[in-house]
């Protein structure tokens, strides 16, 4: 789907940036790259442009430019209700964080069952039951 089709509060992972030339390169240099997580923050009072959060900073894009960006909708694990099965799409962190998550069976592509959402979060992976801090669960994106 297009980034412009996401609603405020929703998250997406960038799949592809379409277009050529200036528009394309400008978007890339701002960090709008495949694999990046982007959150829709709010819409301008008049409907356009829209504010997004990306890599910890905030940018505004006109709808026309946002339609060049193809995303998949994802949700942070921390927002998944109890009793849901999800698949890990992306882990936002460095090598150390990804390794730590791996020891709990949380890795890209793996299935996770949310036993209890809060607090703390209890999940079941193929390696067993684990508790997860909110900060950690916030950095794991699932579908």
């Amino acid at each position: 789907m297009k980034l412009s089709e996401l609603n405020p509060g929703e998250y997406g992972i960038i799949k592809e940036v379409l277009g050529r030339g200036t528009v394309h390169r400008r978007l890339l240099s701002m960090g709008l790259l495949p694999g990046a997580i982007i959150r829709v923050v709010r819409t301008s009072p008049l409907g356009d442009p829209v504010e997004y959060e990306l890599r910890g900073f905030f940018i505004s894009l006109r709808k026309q430019e946002a339609s060049y960006i193809i995303v998949d909708r994802v949700v942070p694990l921390s927002m998944i209700p109890s009793g849901t099965d999800v698949q890990v799409i992306f882990i936002d962190g460095g090598v150390g964080f990804i390794r730590n998550m791996g020891t709990m069976g949380i890795a890209v592509g793996k299935k996770v069952h949310v036993t209890k959402r809060c607090c703390p979060m209890i999940i079941r992976t193929e390696l067993g039951d684990f508790t997860l801090g909110r900060g950690m669960a916030y950095r794991i994106f699932v579908r």
């Binding site: 905030f58 940018i59 430019e65």
Partner: peptide
């Protein structure tokens, strides 16, 4: 404009 309007909100 020839450039897209990408605006940082610091």
């Amino acid at each position: 404009r020839t450039e897209p309007f990408v605006l940082e909100l610091p």
